[in-house]
């Protein structure tokens, strides 16, 4: 069985999804179900004080008994905020230590601040968190995060929420080739083919939110993404054929073609490039 193993725990789905930007909790739940994801990200935010005490709670819709919740530090621009947020998350989730660390550098691009991220990762690992870390697609930084003890590295494919797809497959390839821990593309996937390309490169998984939530039909897109990740994984395992500009290797037998076609194929064969 081809499973994803993160921090010693086994998952059958290689698609991880976020839970933000849906129109209501019903849509969130339906999309998560259609995606087949087992790991779902949640954000940690101040609760409303005194207003609307009966507001529904996300964890009632997506219970921790059923899903592996991955609390994130989205919106944190300093290592201090990120570390405090994840300590709160661990308390909130009864000691659950698998977390997604991201320290942002700039509100316009949401590009990660890797200096702060490295420092935060070090503190969190010392405190026995299992850190899945959002990172730039710098292969050296990714390796440092692994050496430090992160349980997965999650390079961006393009900017968070941009839907621009896989902009630098070559860097991802280097990160994957170097890594002994799971590499998951996090951020930038826009449509199903992007997820497939990430998986064909050899990524261990893909994490996405906006590509599903901002689709016209999020539930249908969630289903498409599930298939795209599975297809990409199978293609990666199957090993693609080599690319050849001129193959002249038809799939059907060249002999016995009726009438005059034979003349054309003979002429073409003499023009074959070296």
């Amino acid at each position: 069985m081809d499973n994803l193993v993160i921090a010693g725990k086994t998952y059958t789905s290689r698609l991880l999804v976020g839970t933000g930007k849906y129109k209501d909790f019903n849509e969130t739940r339906a999309a998560v179900e259609a995606s087949g994801a087992e790991i779902i990200t949640v954000a940690i935010r101040r609760t409303n004080i005194g207003q609307n005490a009966n507001e529904p709670n996300l964890l009632e819709v997506l219970p921790p008994s059923q899903y592996t919740l991955l609390p994130n530090t989205a919106g944190c621009y300093t290592l201090d905020d990120a570390v405090r947020t994840l300590r709160l998350a661990r308390e909130l989730l009864d000691g659950h230590s698998l977390v997604k660390l991201e320290v942002l550098g700039d509100p316009k691009t949401l590009y990660p601040n890797m200096v702060e991220t490295l420092k935060a990762a070090e503190i969190l690992i010392k405190e026995d968190f299992q850190v899945m870390v959002y990172t730039s697609d710098d292969p050296i930084i990714a390796k440092q995060l692994e050496d430090m003890g992160c349980v997965a590295v999650m390079p961006l494919a393009s900017l968070i929420g941009s839907g621009m797809g896989i902009l630098n497959p070559w860097n991802l390839q280097i990160i994957i080739d170097n890594a002994k821990i799971p590499v998951l593309v996090d951020a930038g996937v826009g449509t199903a083919s992007d997820a497939t390309i990430a998986m064909e490169l050899g990524c261990d998984g893909v994490l996405m939110n906006t590509a599903i939530a901002a689709a016209k039909s999020p539930i249908l897109m969630a289903s498409a993404m599930r298939k795209a990740v599975e297809a990409g994984r199978e293609a990666y395992l199957a090993g693609r054929m080599a690319k050849k500009l001129y193959s002249a290797s038809p799939s059907s037998p060249p002999e016995g073609v009726i009438a005059q076609t034979e003349k054309i194929t003979k002429r073409s064969a003499s023009n074959k490039p070296r």
């Binding site: 999804v17 976020g18 839970t19 933000g20 930007k21 849906y22 969130t28 990200t41 949640v42 954000a43 940690i44 935010r45 101040r46 609760t47 004080i49 709670n57 996300l58 964890l59 919740l69 609390p71 994130n72 989205a74 405090r84 947020t85 709160l88 998350a89 909130l92 989730l93 968070i160 994490l207 996405m208 939110n209 906006t210 939530a213």
Partner: peptide, 10 residues
């Protein structure tokens, strides 16, 4: 004091 809950996020 900071009082927090889990909300939807990516």
């Amino acid at each position: 004091l900071e009082v927090v809950v889990a909300v939807g996020g990516g």
